[in-house]
Amino acid sequence: MKALDDVSFSIEKGQVVLIVGSSGSGKSTLLNMIGLLDSPTNGNIFIDDINTTTLNDNEISSFRNKKLGFIFQFSNLLSDLSVLENVLLPLQIAGNDLTSEEDAIDLLKAVGLEDQLHKRANKISGGQAQRVAIARGLINKPSIVLADEPTGNLDSVTSQLIVDLMKSMAKKLNQTFVIVTHDRQHFGNVDKVITIKDGKAFQVEEFSTMEITV
């Protein structure tokens, strides 16, 4: 049985794309494949004109580090590090020194956490953690930010704040977001919605403009 089959679509730079579908439809598998966390048995995934299916393990790691940003459902911050250190982690993994600390602080200011910089990651609320995750996902100026159910663990008010934040960051930074969600309503207007059903791209809807409501 194939988790995904006959799925083909393209995403333009700066677009906010939703992948929706019922539980078990294969949307997270699709996101993992775009994120090079999983590899397809057949077919190709091109990101920035690079066929990612041909990369070896080290190249995949570098690619993930430089071209992709991740936001997970449970934020997945490293509890041993502070808020600022979590945001800086992708840079440190890339081998950059801390000269980009200012960028990290700017991003944390943009997500409204300038007063939490040195707090341990396990001492902040779920909504704050998800905002840190957004900042961490953006720190390397990736080609795509991949978000897997980013509001799945939050109450509706906080969820809306996170959605609005992602959309505003997308607009402000001309950043591509690919978001897996089962709750399309929260996101309002986006550039593209891909509906996955039984592992197939059941429907791809494109919209000419995306309205941002913050």
Binding site: N58, N65, F72, L78, L89, P90
Partner: peptide
């Protein structure tokens, strides 16, 4: 385990 997974996801190589 989870932290290792996160680090690998955001680009840490096996060597790291």
């Amino acid at each position: 385990t989870k932290e290792i997974g996160v680090m690998r996801a955001i680009g840490a190589k096996r060597k790291d």
